[in-house]
């Protein structure tokens, strides 16, 4: 009989606490598999954020930090600079990275810190119960924008991948999605490339992963997938925005 599924050694066997339909688990699995495929699990240190994935340190089968809210890129900087032989990744949500941790991510990227950031964008604050995130869409309802996000009051959602692409420092910057099997296969390839760049010591690597939050969006997983495609993907286009060889000499990357 053909084996079609097996646990990956890159994750622990603990069941995750994530809500039904959430794709954090899928993204965790991609990273876990990549650590095993690249043979780096035993020299990888991951950094969990504050947010839904605050407990990610329980699920990744490698050494793990829990950082304070938004500071994972600073923690990773301290670790990677002093132990460049280790593989470092931060796993951060949209509130953690694009709101409270904006300074840390921009400066880590701009210094060209040689770690990998996985940025999970589900357009909402999940753990605290559905408040507005910097990536919440215009008119999208949240518990702190009950009438929908009004750009006149709250501004427009921040496109992190594009924002970081404006930096001159060489980097690998991409946006992928995790909402379907096909997209997840593509996402994993891109994340793997990010880790490979880190292994080669090339550059800062950043992969934004679009994700759904059925619980706080108030939609079924199926509806959530449709909403992501209809509302988020046009505003947050997928692609590799910047590759190290493209980003020298002030070339700000190609879409």
């Amino acid at each position: 009989m053909k084996k079609v599924f097996a646990f990956t050694d890159g994750l622990t066997r603990l069941p995750t606490h994530y809500c039904p339909g959430c794709t954090h688990g899928v993204i965790h699995r991609m990273i876990g598999e990549i650590m095993v495929e690249l043979g780096i699990r035993e020299r990888t240190v991951g950094i969990a954020p504050v947010g839904c994935s605050v407990l990610a340190y329980k699920y990744f089968n490698c050494d793990m930090f829990e950082a304070s809210h938004g500071r994972a890129p600073a923690v990773a900087t301290g670790a990677k600079r002093t132990r460049p032989d280790l593989m470092l990744f931060t796993y951060q949500g949209d509130g953690d990275l694009a709101s409270i941790g904006m300074a840390e991510i921009i400066h880590a990227a701009n210094r060209g810190e040689k770690f990998t950031t996985i940025f999970v964008n589900n357009a909402i604050y999940g753990m605290t119960g559905g408040q507005m995130a910097p990536t919440t869409m215009p008119r999208q309802r949240s518990t702190t924008t009950p009438a929908g996000r009004d750009p006149a009051e709250c501004g427009f959602p921040i496109r992190m991948a594009e924002l970081l692409t404006t930096l001159t420092t060489p980097a690998f910057i991409a946006r992928v999605s995790s909402h379907t099997a096909a997209q997840s296969v593509r996402a994993k390839k891109v994340i793997k490339e990010a880790f490979e760049h880190q292994m080669a010591g090339t550059c800062f690597t950043f992969v934004e992963v679009l994700s759904i939050c059925p619980t706080n969006w108030g939609l079924s997983p199926k509806e959530s997938n449709r909403w992501l495609e209809r509302e988020m993907m046009p505003y947050y286009p997928l692609g590799v925005f910047k590759r190290p060889q493209e980003s020298t000499g002030g070339d700000h990357g190609k879409h």
């Binding site: 240190v45 930090f65 950082a67 500071r71 301290g78 670790a79 990677k80 600079r81 002093t82 280790l86």
Partner: peptide
């Protein structure tokens, strides 16, 4: 937070 990271490793 950088010293947190460095001390942690």
């Amino acid at each position: 937070n950088m010293i947190y990271g460095a001390a942690g490793v």
